[in-house]
Design a protein around this nucleic acid. Sequence first.
DNA 1: TGATTATATGGCAATATACTCACATATTAC
DNA 2: GTAATATGTGAGTATATTGCCATATAATCA
Lengths: 109, 109
Amino acid sequence: MSDENKHLRYERQAEIAKAIGHPLRVAIIDFLKDGEQCVCDIAQHAGSERSNISRHLSVMVRAGILGYRKEGLKVIYKLKTPCILDFFSCVAVVIKQQVKESEKLLKSM
Amino acid sequence: MSDENKHLRYERQAEIAKAIGHPLRVAIIDFLKDGEQCVCDIAQHAGSERSNISRHLSVMVRAGILGYRKEGLKVIYKLKTPCILDFFSCVAVVIKQQVKESEKLLKSM
DNA sequence: TGATTATATGGCAATATACTCACATATTAC
DNA sequence: GTAATATGTGAGTATATTGCCATATAATCA
């Protein structure tokens, strides 16, 4: 792969990671894992203003991880690539590893 | 899981995703996938100043995705949780999906 | 000891991001 | 047509991130 292509790929990967990298957006992804939801319900569940949620949703749509469809007055968002959820299991690995290290540190005191 | 725990988990997950969410940091992770490297080599490979790379590395260490050891003058960084790399294959899925959509759009014109 | 090398960090300016409020748009029902 | 509802967006402020430079720290070697 050329350096320029690599650079583009890194930009793209970073954009996707950044689109996940906010507590509210993680909460939204977690909420959408069981099925599509309208903005109103997402806002209610995440506990934030609709306008704010709307912006966070558009960030994730732009990054390519969410899709949406309109149904009457409502706009229904859904996870486009559920493999995003695998990332969360890796996060669990990271956290477990940190717990293990803390325990090791504690034992050596 | 309690709401408070959920909130903490979301924060933690977001922190880790954010730690990946920068082109230089993606480049660093990609460089480290084949083994540990010193700051000097990482900086050279990523094409940025050492001071800048040093900061990016500390972001990832804080998030728990990198570890390091000192060896003489050098500090050697390594991927702590290679499952982070699985995230990149999901990114590939996201990108492929977008290509597919663009093609569909093109055909309909 | 002093010189050299590798890395980390404080300070600063530029830029990007997040949140809130008000308003615009779009769809439905009457 | 108007009213009501759901969503999106512009503007402004607050805060965070980034990159660069100068400098601090730490390890090695003469």
